[in-house]
Design a protein around this nucleic acid. Sequence first.
DNA 1: CTAGGGTTAG
Length: 456
Amino acid sequence: MPYRDVVAATAAIGALTRGSRHRDAVTLFSRVLSDGIPPNEFTFGTVLRSATALRDLRVGTQLHACVAKFGLCSNVFVGSALVDHYAKMGAMAEAQSALGDTHEPNVVSYTALIAGFLKNGMFDDAHRLFQCMPERNVVSWNAMIGGCSQAGLNEEAVGLFLEMCRQGVRPNDSTFPCVLTSVANAGALGVGRSVHASAIKLLGKLDVYIGNSLVSCYARCGSLEDSVLAFRKMKQKNLVTWNALICGYAQNGRGQEALGAYETMRAMGLKADNVTLLGLLFGCNHAGLVDEGYSLFKTAQLEQAGILKPEHYACVVDLLSRANRFDDAKRFLQELPFEPGIGFWKSMIGGCQIHWNKDLAESVAERIQALDPKDTSSYILLSNVYSAAGSWQSVSMIRRQIKEKGLKRITGCSWIEVQNDVHVFFNGDSRHSQCDEIYMMLESCLGTEEDEHCLV
DNA sequence: CTAGGGTTAG
């Protein structure tokens, strides 16, 4: 039974799109076409959304050709939908060209393109377009801030947030989760508190997204007190809220509390998902709760195997290796339902370093170097195992190899924020103005057990 | 009848 007109047909396709029946929406669209009903801008808008949800660039391209056939390429609405589709598929050249075909592109068209640039790591293009677009609204600012956050451009994201406020654009509910992610990435506790305060001032009530971001942000900035406070203050909580709390405990080495939170969560009738499990395993790992972690994994394997991902398996390898249970770790690796990537072997060699397991470290290092000859970390870790075991000849041999192969070490660093100043430290750093006091304090904290021969 | 931006892990 063909539809009466394009309005009825579009309504039917839209219902399918909204109901997430995207394949059906596309099929219905083709049927409407073959029934001889010419689609309009709304029809294309909704069916393009389904094509995006299906992540099917082929469908998008066919729809684009169809748009051209009906002379709708210059329509703003259709144009924006095309830009959005291509941008989400990562086809940035096509997205740009769709914007170019649009007669008078508006703020929506530009924002869709900017979001696409950021998702595809093209920060400079995004920034340039953001600067020169004719009009910016809160959504465009959010797209920039969120895109920077996701790309790890944390200073840029926080800077954009401040600039937005300075220009008098009022942040909304979506702005805060974006910027708080960056604050958390940077571990900037003071900035986090200011952002929190401005959210309360501007919005009054904080929704569950903002609450979740705060719980996580405070924990990742090292303030579990603030994190738990934010958690308790939330009226509505969802699985993400619990995950944020559990992961926060885990990251701060509080495995027992993570497990406790999980108990409470289950008592409230919530089921763990992959993030919950990862947080729990991570927490057990860092608190030395080997048996607890292993049994959580085993239970998940039996009861909800669907949530298990390579990360979870990697966590278990880490757990067993750190606990000196190398036989269990090896058996576990052999029984993996997939090929272990390089990270699995790195977990194991990390355990070898802790437990001075020279022989195993050698064979694992060989594997890592076979998988990635440029990998420096295996050399460093191996050399640390040798120095721990007192094999100085082997240490100098490794150092020579690193030099000969022209491998570069990426130096790790850490930082801490004190009253809005960020202090960064590298290994063996002596540049800080209070260097002497810091090393003195370190020595008194560490006692005399410190191994000076370690490279990392 | 409609579009673009949001939370948790690594």
